[in-house]
Every structure is written in C-alpha cells, then in structure tokens.
Design a binder for these strands. Structure first.
Length: 343
DNA sequence: TATCTTATCT
DNA sequence: TAGATAAGAT
C-alpha cells in the first residue's frame, strides 16, 4: 500500500471550506467528514476500530485547543491523530506532538504530504504486531520524538530499600518527548550558567534564562546533573594526572588534553584537591580552560561535556533534533560530529 | 509547598 | 550512555 487508497480517515474541522478541500484530496479513502467535535467522538465510539487515522484541526469553535486530541487518545490510544492548523509556529507543532499527535500539517493542506499518511497505518500495524511502540518513533514521521509511554508502565522502583513498590500516578497515555541535548541546547545551557553565574546555577534559573519552549525544569536538572558529574570527574582526573606524570592530563582521549598544551592546562590544576569540592569551583576552572582553549584555537568549537554529540551540519530546532543515522556513541566518524569520551 | 539533588531506571 | 523519573533533602 503506497497511497491513501483503502485508508479509513476521519477528518474533523469546523471550517467547511477547509473540510471540502480535504475531502477532495482524500476522496479515495473511506473518508468521513465530521464538523462537530462531539460528533467525531461519538462516531469513533460507535465505530471503534473502523478508522485508521484521524485528521483534526486544532482550533474549533466550542472546544478547547487539543481537547479533541486528548479525548481521542483517552478513548483509543492506538489511533494515530494528525493535527492540522494554519498556525505554523514551531511551538504549536511541538505542543501537538507532546500532546500525543503523530504529525502536524499546516494549512493549506498539500497533496504530497497527505499521500504519505498511509505510513501511519503501517506503523500502527507494526506496533500491534511487535507489541511495543518505543522504537516506532525512530522510523516514523516524528523520528526525533521518542515515545515514553512504555517507560511509564514501570511500577516498581528500587528506592534505597525504603519503599520497594510504588504505583506510577501519572496517566500512562501522556506522551512526552525525549529532549536531546544537541549543541544548540547545550550552548544555551552554558550561556545561561554564564549569565546567572555558577553559584546561582540551579534548574529553575537555568531554565528561565534558556527560555526554550517545551523544555522542563526536570530536563535541565537531569542535564545539570550530568554536567556536574562531568566537571567533577574531569577535575579529579586532571588533578591525579598532574600528580602522576606531571604533564597535566594523562588521558590522551580527553578533550583538553588533545587541544591544550599540557603546560597551559596545568596552570589551572594547581588548586589543592581539598578545595576542589563545589560545582562553582569545577565550573570556574573549566570555563577558564575553555577560554584559553578558544584563545589557543582560532576556530572556536562549541564547548560540550563528554558524550554530547554535536551535529554542526544539521538544522537546529532546539530540542529533539534527529540523531537517527548518526549511530550510537562511539561511532562518531562523521566529520561534522564531535564526540568526546570520558573514560 | 516548591525546588534541588541524588540515585536509579530504561 | 543519555535522559527521565522517583524520592529524600532542603
């Protein structure tokens, strides 16, 4: 099946003209138009499993934005829902995907895009046969948004032996995207820390300064944790390296050791280990080192912690950039990729 | 109660 | 390994 033929599509739009255009485009399907959102829901209830796909406008009279999407997903989480709107803002698109939509179409609809919708049916069928969805997004039309619903299914967590079993309270139908910390996001993260100062670098402040739609405090907290760990490990390693061979950096795979002359790097490794105990200290040392690195290398490369892949050639969306096809960590052979190993 | 931090999970 | 999340700490 490589066309819309045979695909059972329900289109919901309160704009009659828009609906007629969609109808014309989708005439090869068992297409049912439906103006009223409640009518659409009733239709879906009475014809459970009769539709392969729902295309719905975001904004409709008498109903809140995304309300129909949420209701549909509550009733039938398997049904792919495609949102459409004249709104072409990236924030709205991200919000739609976050709410659980499979795809976002901007109006006026284009036949070329509609003709690719048969893929949703294939994806859905594959999900059913495999029994999981977590890999699907990597191959579907929303490749960078990794479905977290399967993760929500976990209800047992090891908790330091205190409360072994805990029910997950959150609605498992809510789909959250995975935030990929690409060079754009990480640069904004560093920029935020520079502006507010490392002593005030807490998730809330960083998030506020970053001002990235869709990014949450939890996302920032998670990244901050990794970043702190990286700085700590780096500082400790550098200190021990200085003690060991008196050349600053013992590990040749380290970013700084590759790019910074040992005597230059060692200038910042004179702090006794007893004083090297805070994020602020680690950060200042790291930032100083980066300054020297940038001064030493005319081409200022983005500054990143280890294992954060930089896709210099790809368009930056800010979050959820598609890393498909770049391989797993350790495979970064592409010239446009910079990847660092720490241990 | 809100937020941060840490440990643990996927 | 990266990012999400649970839960204790502040």
């Amino acid at each position: 099946m490589e066309s819309l033929e045979g695909l059972r599509v329900l289109v919901v739009d309160d704009d009659v003209v828009s609906l007629k255009i969609a109808g014309k485009m989708l005439r090869s399907c068992k297409y049912i138009e439906c103006i009223d959102a409640n009518e659409a829901l009733n239709l879906l209830r009475s014809h459970l499993n009769c539709f392969d796909l729902v295309i719905t406008d975001i904004t409709m009279t008498g109903i809140n934005d995304f309300q129909l999407l949420e209701s549909i997903l509550q009733e039938n989480n398997d049904l792919p829902v495609v949102m459409m709107s004249v709104d072409d803002k990236i924030e709205t698109m991200i919000k739609s995907i976050q709410k659980g939509a499979y795809f976002y179409l901007t109006k006026p609809l284009k036949m070329e895009l509609l003709m690719t919708l048969w893929q949703f049916v294939m994806v859905k069928n594959r999900e059913k046969s495999i029994g999981r969805r977590d890999n699907i997004s990597q191959n579907s039309m929303t490749p960078s948004l990794i479905d977290q619903s399967s993760r929500k299914g976990k209800n047992i967590m090891k908790t330091h032996g205190k409360q072994p079993i805990k029910e997950n309270k959150k609605n498992s139908k809510e789909i959250k995207p995975v935030v990929v910390w690409d060079s754009y996001l990480h640069d904004k993260f560093i920029e935020a820390i520079q502006i507010i100062g490392p002593h005030r670098a807490v998730p809330k402040n960083i998030l506020e300064k970053m001002n990235v739609p869709g990014l949450t405090r939890e996302n920032v907290a998670s990244h901050l944790q990794k970043f702190r760990l990286y700085l700590k490990k780096r500082m400790e390693k550098n200190f021990h390296g200085t003690l060991g061979d008196n050349h600053g950096f013992s590990n040749p795979t380290q970013f700084v050791s590759m790019e910074t002359p040992p005597q230059m790097a060692q200038q910042h490794m004179t702090t006794p280990i007893t004083q090297v105990n805070s994020f602020e200290t680690y950060y200042e040392s790291w930032a100083k080192n980066q300054q020297m690195f940038n001064a030493h290398n005319s081409s200022s490369l983005p500054v990143v912690p280890p294992n954060i892949r930089i896709e210099l050639s790809q368009p930056v969306i800010g979050m959820n950039c598609n890393h498909m096809g770049t391989g797993n960590a350790g495979e970064g052979n592409n010239q446009s990729d910079i990847e660092m190993e720490d241990d």
